[in-house]
Design a protein around this nucleic acid. Structure first.
Length: 859
RNA sequence: GCGAAAGUGGCGGAAUUGGUAGACGCGCUGGAUUUAGGUUCCAGUGGGCAUAGCCCCGUGAGAGUUCGAGUCUCUCCUUUCGCACCA
C-alpha cells in the first residue's frame, strides 16, 4: 500500500465506484426504516459558494451516517432555477435566461459530484422544467377555484425610467439600481395566496415541531404574530364613513387624542383632493421604500386631514392625521393614537402639539410615572376613564368589549401580523401564473396546462419579453370562445421552493403532482439549510404542505420533522466609492494589513496597490462580491480536506467568518491518518483482539477507542456538532500515535483503533475512508458498513480523577478508587496537604460531593 | 424601529445537566531530521509576579442568585441574520 496520501487519485476512484455501482440510487422499501435527508437546493448562480459546500456537507454527513445505521436513505438534489439573476445576465450578455441557467446547472452539478456528495441523481430536476412547474400551475388553479388564490391591488417599487417593477434589493438608497432615479411607490393588481386562512394552524403546528431549533420556532411565532384585542369603529364626523382600527390595549381607549391613517388610506386620498398640503405629503411618502425596516426607521411625520373621528365611548371628537409610520398593508391601515401610553404616539404628539392624556397609572404609587417625560407603556390601573376607572387591564378589556358589543361600535377580535402572500412578479424568468383575463375584465384559469414559458426570447431593455410576445399573450376564453389576454405575471420563486421536497419523491410522475411514494418518504426526516430562511421559505413550505394535504396529496401535517439551520458563511467586504455609491471588490483582489492584535488596519488593491475601503463583515453574497470560491480549494486540497475543514472549523448552526489559513491543518490530519493506516497495513495482517490477553496499555487504548465511538455517535446523532466529533477522532489518532506496542496483541488493538477511525470518519471524509476500508481487507464498501458499536466492558475504569475545591477554588486533583463511597471520598479530600493548607484554621462548614466528579469544602 | 441569535487566548473553537476554563486545530517560539527551503517529528504557547506557587487575575461591560457562574437572572454595549419583490 502506498504510504503517501494522494487525494486526487483516491477521490476519483471512489467517485467512479459510487457512480458505477449506483450506490446512492434508492427505491421505496416498506420493510426498511426510511430516512429522507434534504439540503436546501441551490439557485444556479454559476458556481458553488462556501455556503453551499457547508450546507451540502452537513446533509451528506447525516445521510451517510443514517445509511450506516441501516436505514433506507433518500438524499436528492435539484435546482431552484427561476429568479432575477438570470434576467440580469440575459440583459447584460444577451443570453436567454434558460440557456444561462442550464449552463450553470451543468457546471455546478460537476462541482457537486467532485465533492463526493451521495445524491440519487436519478431524481434531479430544475424548477424551470415544464414538468415541474406545470403542477404548481395546476395547484394554483385548484386554489383559485377554492377561493384561496385571489387578486388585489398592492404596493410595488416602480422605476419611472425603466418602466418596471423593482425588487427591494434593486432599490439602493431610494433609487433604482440601474436608472439611478428616485423610485415611486405604485399600486398594481397582484395575485395573492390566502396564507392568513392557515395562520392559526401554522401557529399551532409549531408546537409539534420538537425537532426544530427553538429560535426558528420563536421567529415564526412572532412573524405570524397572533394578538387578541378589539376592533373599534370611530365614525367620521359629518358623514357615513367609519374609521376601523384594531388595538391590543383597549384599556387605554380614554387616552385617545388623535387618529392616524396610512398615506394610501381612502380618507387620506380623499383629503388630498382638496388639500394641497396633504397631497404633497402623500406624494412625498410615495418616495420612501416599502420595506418594514424603511418605514419603521423613518423620521415620524404627518399632516392633519381636517376631519374628525368620534370616540366610540366618550362621544368626543379627535382629529384624524395621515402619518408615514402607519402601513396600509397592516390591519386596517389606521390606528388610534394614545400618546400617554405609547412611545411612538407620544413622540408624534410632541412634534405636532397634540394632546397627551394619562389614563393608566402604576399600581404601586411609588413607581415614577411622568407622562410629560415619556409615555407610560406598562399595564396598570385605569384612571380618568369614566365608569372603567379603577379597573385592571383584564377587567377593563372585558368591560369595554361588552359595552362596545352592545353599542355595536366594536368587537373582540384576533389579529395576525401575518399578511397574505403576494405571489405574482412582473418578471419573465418564472413560472407563468396560469390565468386569463377575458374581454369583460373577468378572470379565468388557463384551460390547458402547463402554460409554458417561451424560452427562446430576447430582452429589449429590462421589461419582460412576455409583454411583447403576441403568441403568448393571445388566448381564448374557454367559456365564450372570445379572445382573452394571458396573464404575464410569473410566480414568486418561493412558490417553486415551497414544494420541491415533495416532488423529489416522485419526479417522474407525468399524471399527478404527487403519488403514493410521497406518502412513503414524507415528512423529510432531516432538513438542512441556511438560517436566513428561518421565516419566509420555511413558513411558505409549511403552508404549501397543508395546501397539498387538503388536496389529498400528502397525509402528514408538517413537511420537515427535524431542521438544522446552518449558520451563515460571512466574510469581510471591501469597496471603492464611485459617484457616491460603493463598488464592491472581491477579497481575493485585496491585500489586507493587520496590526499586532490581528485587527485590520488597512487594505490595498492587488492590481494597483491603491487603498480600498474596508466594509463590514457580512454574509457572502453576489451583491457584496465577498464570496470565496471553493473551487480553488477543491483543486488544491481535494474534496475530503474541504469537507473536513468546513465541518471542523465551527459548529454547523453558528456563523462562520471565513479565514482560509487553517485548511492545511485538515489536510495534515488526513495525511497522518493515511500514513498510520498504510504503515499498519504494510506490516501484515493482525489477529483479532483477544480480550483476555490485554495489559493496562491495551486496555487504555481500547477505552479511548470506545469512549471515542460513544462521543462521536452522540455528537453526530443527537448534538449535530461535527466539529467536536472530529476533534475526538483527532485525539484518538494522537493516542494511537503514542501507542508503540508492535506485538501481535498490540497490533490487534491498533487495528481496532484504525478501523474505528475509518468508520467514524466515513460520513465526513468518504473518499479516504473508502480507500482505507478496502486496504484494511474488507470486501464490501465502507458506505455499506455498519456504524461501530460501543463495547461497554472497554469503558470500565478502576480509578477516577476527582477535583477538590476549597470554597469553590480548585486546590487538588485526586485519583480515587471508582467504587469509593462518599465518606471515603471526603476523608481522602480532607487529608490532602494542599487542601488542608487552604482550609487552615477555619472550621469546615459543609462538604459538597458531586459523585464521580468533584468535592467542594466550604469553610 | 421590530423579531432572533452571538460575544471565551494572536485566530477558529471546546467546556453536553450550574461543577477542573482554553479540549482539538491554526499560528507562533525553540529543538531534531534535511545541502537549503518545504515536509515530518519532539517540546512550549491566556495574562501577571522582588515570592514561579497545582499562587493571583481572567470568558464584551456592570450588577445579582449560588458552596460554586463562560453557563442562570437583570441592565447596557458590540456584531450578525430576518423584516414579506435577493435567493
Amino acid at each position: 500500500m502506498d504510504e503517501s496520501y494522494k487525494p486526487n487519485e483516491i477521490e476519483q476512484e471512489a467517485q467512479r465506484f459510487w457512480e458505477q455501482n449506483k450506490s446512492f440510487r434508492v427505491v421505496e422499501d416498506s420493510r426498511r426504516e426510511k430516512f429522507y435527508c434534504l439540503s436546501m437546493f441551490p439557485y444556479p448562480s454559476g458556481r458553488l459558494h462556501m455556503g453551499h459546500v457547508r450546507n451540502y456537507t452537513i446533509g451528506d454527513v447525516i445521510s451517510r451516517y443514517q445509511r450506516m445505521l441501516g436505514k433506507n436513505v433518500l438524499q436528492p438534489m435539484g435546482w431552484d432555477a427561476f429568479g432575477l439573476p438570470a434576467e440580469n445576465a440575459a440583459i447584460q450578455n444577451r443570453v436567454p435566461p434558460a440557456q444561462w441557467t442550464r449552463q450553470n446547472i451543468e457546471y455546478m452539478k460537476g462541482q457537486l459530484k467532485r465533492l463526493g456528495f451521495g445524491y440519487d441523481w436519478d431524481r434531479e430536476f430544475a424548477t424551470c422544467d415544464r414538468d415541474y412547474y406545470r403542477w404548481e400551475q395546476w395547484l394554483f388553479t385548484r386554489l383559485y377555484e377554492k377561493g384561496l388564490a385571489y387578486r388585489k391591488h398592492a404596493v410595488v417599487n416602480w422605476d419611472p425610467v425603466d418602466q418596471t417593477v423593482l425588487a427591494n434589493e434593486q432599490v439602493v438608497d431610494g433609487k433604482g439600481w440601474r436608472s439611478g432615479v428616485a423610485v415611486e411607490r405604485r399600486e398594481i393588481p397582484q395575485w395573492f395566496l390566502k396564507i392568513t386562512d392557515y395562520a392559526d394552524e401554522l401557529l399551532r403546528g409549531l408546537e409539534t415541531l420538537s425537532g426544530w431549533p427553538e429560535n426558528v420556532i420563536t421567529m415564526q411565532r412572532n412573524w405570524i404574530g397572533r394578538s387578541e384585542g378589539l376592533e373599534m369603529d370611530f365614525p367620521i364626523a359629518g358623514g357615513d364613513d367609519v374609521l376601523k382600527i384594531f388595538t391590543t390595549r383597549p384599556d387605554t381607549v380614554f387616552g385617545v387624542t388623535y387618529m392616524a391613517v396610512a398615506a394610501e388610506h381612502p380618507l387620506s386620498v380623499r383629503a388630498a383632493q382638496s388639500d394641497s398640503d396633504v397631497a404633497a405629503f402623500i406624494e412625498e411618502c410615495g418616495h420612501h421604500g416599502v420595506t418594514e425596516a424603511d418605514v419603521e426607521t423613518l423620521e415620524k411625520d404627518g399632516r392633519p386631514l381636517g376631519i374628525e373621528a368620534t370616540h366610540p365611548i366618550t362621544g368626543e371628537t379627535v382629529p384624524v392625521w395621515v402619518a408615514n409610520f402607519v402601513l396600509m398593508s397592516y390591519g386596517t391601515g389606521a390606528v388610534m393614537a394614545v400618546p400617554g401610553h405609547d412611545q411612538r404616539d407620544w413622540e408624534f404628539a410632541r412634534a405636532h402639539g397634540l394632546r397627551i392624556k394619562q389614563v393608566i397609572a402604576p399600581w404601586d404609587e411609588t413607581t415614577p410615572c411622568d407622562i410629560s417625560e415619556c409615555a407610560y407603556t406598562e399595564k396598570g390601573v385605569l384612571v380618568d376613564s369614566g365608569q372603567f376607572t379603577g379597573m385592571s387591564f383584564e377587567q377593563s378589556f372585558d368591560a369595554i368589549a361588552q359595552q362596545l358589543e352592545r353599542t355595536q361600535l366594536g368587537r373582540r377580535c384576533v389579529n395576525f401580523r401575518l399578511r397574505d402572500w403576494g405571489v405574482s412578479r412582473q418578471r419573465y424568468w418564472g413560472a407563468p401564473v396560469p390565468m386569463l383575463q377575458t374581454e369583460d375584465g373577468g378572470l379565468v384559469p388557463a384551460p390547458e396546462l402547463p402554460v409554458e414559458l417561451p424560452e427562446n426570447v430576447e430582452f429589449e431593455g429590462v421589461r419582460s419579453p412576455l409583454l411583447n410576445l403576441r403568441e403568448f399573450l393571445q388566448a381564448v376564453d374557454p367559456k365564450t370562445g372570445r379572445p382573452a389576454r394571458r396573464e404575464t405575471d410569473t410566480f414568486d420563486t418561493f412558490v417553486e421552493s415551497s414544494w420541491y421536497y415533495a416532488r423529489f419523491c416522485c419526479p417522474d410522475n407525468e399524471a399527478a403532482m404527487l403519488d403514493e411514494r410521497a406518502r412513503y418518504w414524507l415528512p423529510v426526516d432531516q432538513y438542512v439549510g441556511g438560517v436566513e430562511h428561518a421565516v419566509l421559505h420555511l413558513l411558505y413550505a409549511r403552508f404549501f404542505h397543508k395546501l397539498m394535504r387538503d388536496e389529498g396529496l400528502v397525509d402528514c401535517d408538517e413537511p420537515f420533522a427535524n431542521l438544522l439551520t446552518q449558520g451563515m458563511v460571512n466574510a469581510q467586504t471591501f469597496f471603492r466609492e464611485h459617484d457616491g455609491h460603493r463598488q464592491w471588490i472581491p477579497p481575493k483582489d485585496v491585500i489586507v494589513q493587520y496590526d499586532a492584535d490581528g485587527k485590520i488596519v488597512g487594505a490595498a488593491h492587488r492590481k494597483d496597490g491603491l487603498p480600498v475601503g474596508v466594509g463590514p463583515v457580512e454574509k457572502m453574497s453576489k451583491s457584496k462580491n465577498n464570496g470565496v470560491d471553493p473551487q480553488s480549494l477543491i483543486d488544491d486540497f481535494g474534496a475530503d480536506t474541504v469537507r473536513l475543514y468546513t465541518m471542523f472549523t465551527a459548529p454547523p448552526d453558528q456563523a462562520l467568518v471565513w479565514n482560509d489559513s487553517a485548511v492545511a491543518g485538515a489536510e495534515r490530519f488526513l495525511s497522518r491518518l493515511w500514513n498510520t493506516a498504510a504503515r499498519h497495513v504494510n506490516e501484515g495482517a493482525a489477529p483479532p483482539v483477544d480480550l483476555s490477553a490485554l495489559d493496562s496499555n491495551h486496555r487504555d487504548l481500547r477505552r479511548k477507542i470506545h469512549e471515542t465511538i460513544a462521543k462521536v455517535t452522540d455528537d453526530i446523532d443527537r448534538r449535530q456538532t461535527f466539529n467536536t466529533a472530529i476533534a475526538a477522532v483527532m485525539e484518538l489518532l494522537n493516542a494511537l500515535g503514542r501507542f508503540e506496542d508492535r506485538s501481535e496483541i498490540g497490533r490487534a488493538v491498533a487495528r481496532e483503533a484504525i478501523s474505528s477511525i475509518v468508520l467514524l470518519l466515513a460520513p465526513i471524509v468518504p473518499h479516504i475512508a473508502h480507500s482505507l476500508w478496502f486496504a484494511l481487507g474488507h470486501e464490501t464498501p465502507v458506505v455499506d458498513a455498519p456504524w461501530p458499536k460501543v463495547d461497554p466492558s472497554a469503558l470500565v475504569k478502576d480509578e477516577i480523577l476527582l477535583v477538590v475545591q476549597v470554597n469553590g477554588k480548585l486546590r487538588a486533583r485526586l485519583a480515587v478508587p471508582a467504587d469509593a463511597d462518599k465518606g471515603r471520598v471526603e476523608e481522602l479530600a480532607l487529608s490532602d496537604a494542599n487542601v488542608r493548607k487552604f482550609i487552615g484554621e477555619k472550621p469546615v462548614r459543609k462538604i459538597i460531593v458531586v459523585e464521580g466528579k468533584l468535592v467542594n469544602v466550604v469553610c
